[in-house]
């Protein structure tokens, strides 16, 4: 076969392949990839986690193909608004502040937050007094960071770009405590990396900060997608897919009351 023919054949194949892929609509989903067990990037560069499985289940339900785009947390909403992707499935709390910029689906899970401290810590309770002048870590621009600033006004709140970094500083003893989702923290303290630390207590949370739970963010006015996602969440809750994914990661129902 001449080079030209080979090229022509390759072009035809490529066109056919894209045509086939386009037959099934794709939904581009933004996620973080640094929040295990909800989303993390494995050693070979794959995105895995509860958020990813839920998103895939929703896509199956909606008969579309999921395409994941990982994005740093700080820029996750601006990138949605800029059209880099169409929905955020990244354990994002539904808050009033965020609702000014994006729309949310119904919640797809809701878990409490917790305080983690080094095992040899002398902190026994999570009150403003006991935490005064202590350093408390949280991930920047999260509801947890806001909550930490509210309930520990006299503490030194240190903000980290992702959960990975405050975990490093907890194990090196730079931090006296950290605040995050109870599931994220309990998975970590059970792992080898987190052997330095223990969960002190869970916290009730402030509905004004945390809102009704974790939802999927879409651009404002993208009602068709939002309705479809809502229907899909309802469907996977009812047909047992949600429970299957839930049980893969947790031994209790993370959907909440």
């Amino acid at each position: 076969m001449s080079l030209f023919k080979k090229l022509a054949a390759a072009t035809v194949l490529a066109v056919l392949a894209t045509g086939a892929a386009q037959a099934q609509e794709t939904l581009r989903i933004g996620t973080e990839g640094a929040y295990p067990p909800f989303s993390e990037i494995t050693a070979d560069g794959k995105l895995v986690g509860f958020d990813i499985d839920i998103a895939n289940a929703l896509c199956d339900e909606m008969k579309v193909k999921c395409e994941f785009i990982s994005q740093d947390w700080d820029g996750i909403i601006p990138a949605l608004l800029a059209g880099k992707y169409d929905a955020i499935v990244a354990s994002m709390s539904i808050t009033e502040e965020r609702k000014e910029k994006v729309d949310f689906t119904d919640k797809y899970y809701d878990t409490p937050q917790a305080i983690v401290v080094p095992k040899d810590s002398d902190i026994t309770e999570a009150t403003a007094e006991s935490m005064a002048d202590r350093s408390v870590g949280a991930q920047s621009s999260t509801t947890h960071a806001q909550y930490a600033e509210q309930i520990f006004p006299d503490s030194d709140i240190r903000l980290y770009p992702s959960a990975d970094e405050y975990k490093l500083d907890l194990s090196s003893g730079r931090l006296d405590a950290a605040l995050d989702d109870v599931i994220v923290l309990s998975e970590w303290v059970d792992s080898e990396d987190g052997s330095c630390c223990k969960i002190l207590t869970t916290l009730p949370g402030d509905p004004k900060i945390y809102g009704p739970g974790i939802g999927i963010a879409v651009r404002k006015g993208d009602d068709e997608l939002r309705e479809k996602l809502n229907a899909a969440i309802k469907a996977i809750r009812e047909n047992g897919t949600y429970k299957k994914i839930n049980d893969k990661y947790f031994d209790f129902d993370v959907y909440g009351g």
């Binding site: 947390w73 700080d74 820029g75 909403i77 601006p78 608004l81 502040e97 000014e100 910029k101 920047s140 621009s141 903000l159």
Partner: peptide, 9 residues
């Protein structure tokens, strides 16, 4: 500034 932007957008 980045913190302020990520809160206020």
């Amino acid at each position: 500034t980045r913190l302020a932007f990520s809160r206020s957008f």
